[in-house]
Design a protein around this nucleic acid. Structure first.
Lengths: 166, 166
DNA sequence: GATAATTGTTATATGCCATAACAATATCGC
DNA sequence: GCGATATTGTTATGGCATATAACAATTATC
């Protein structure tokens, strides 16, 4: 939980009280991993959201914008500029859906597929670099534990209406 | 890594390709924990950032805004409205620093200390609820592993200049 | 004493995210 | 078959978080 603290300041105040919360450790680790991921993707001209979108389009040719928005957990209106960015860079194309003239069929271009392959390798190297410190067994346990914690977080107390976490 | 996916859509596309990344699990768990924390703090009229600020002020009476901004990892300019919010609610007060007329000495009021105690208990219950699924040993291992991953994420490759993760 | 740095504040810009509204199109119910 | 309803993608807009710049008052340094 909580906001993350920086590392240096005159007369720094301890974040020891925050470190008693596992949620704080979770947030700090998540932020560090994301910051490293941002640095990893920057040379490819990709942001996290555009890399994820490209990867999903490569893996699911002809998916619609509504489907992509769903799996990315973003509003359809906010997906438009994400898809625009990938299209304008020449990495994907909006095709006509054969069954529904309202829909686009999103496909990666050859350039997009090549970029995706290269970026995915870089992301896998970023993951290997960050998670090698805890070993393969440690990583498997971490991912398993995170899944349990996520499920617990998404289970609401009695009386609360369910909603997607963000 | 990556953006999180929602749970329901017509013809949903699988996020299986994303689940191969541990960073994705990390982000999903972090988002679920944060969403639950937001729900936990809402009845107290606190946001995550204001709860953390209040907790730090309670634990460190007379700290300055610059110190608080440092430990919260926010810009001094953006701390102003956070402190305003706590002050206007009557939970903290900006006092004169005895040694430096530029500085404020931030202190919690009695009401602020009581609110902090109650909110902290609720946050501890939120943590217990979310992390009980992995047990005390599992939680300790998780926090340890997260620390290692965070450290690896903050270690930059040779040639990169160091910067605070966010 | 002059200069530089610090503290807190204000102003501003940008990006992200949410909501509303709409045209074109598809589906549903009668 | 037709009217009502829903869906898809887009545009517009507002709020929030975050970053940067500039400034006055004050402190620290040389």
């Amino acid at each position: 939980m909580m906001t993350e603290t920086a590392e240096l300041a005159p007369d720094p105040v301890s974040d020891r009280v925050l470190r008693s919360f596992a949620g704080y450790a979770l947030k700090r680790a998540s932020n560090a991993v994301q910051a490293d991921l941002v640095r990893t993707l920057e040379p490819f001209g990709l942001r996290m959201i555009t890399f994820t979108a490209l990867l999903l389009i490569v893996e699911n040719p002809d998916l619609s914008q509504t489907q992509l928005a769903g799996v990315l957990a973003v509003e359809r209106s906010n997906l438009v500029t994400i898809v625009d960015e990938l299209e304008q860079a020449g990495w994907i194309a909006r095709g006509q859906s054969p069954r529904d003239r309202r829909s686009h069929a999103l496909r990666a271009t050859s350039a997009g597929e090549r970029l995706c392959t290269a970026a995915r390798r870089a992301v896998e190297a970023h993951e290997a670099r960050l998670f090698s410190s805890i070993g393969a067994d440690g990583k498997a346990m971490l991912v398993n534990a995170l899944g349990l914690v996520e499920n617990a977080g998404n289970k609401l107390p009695v009386g609360a209406n369910s909603g997607a976490a963000r």
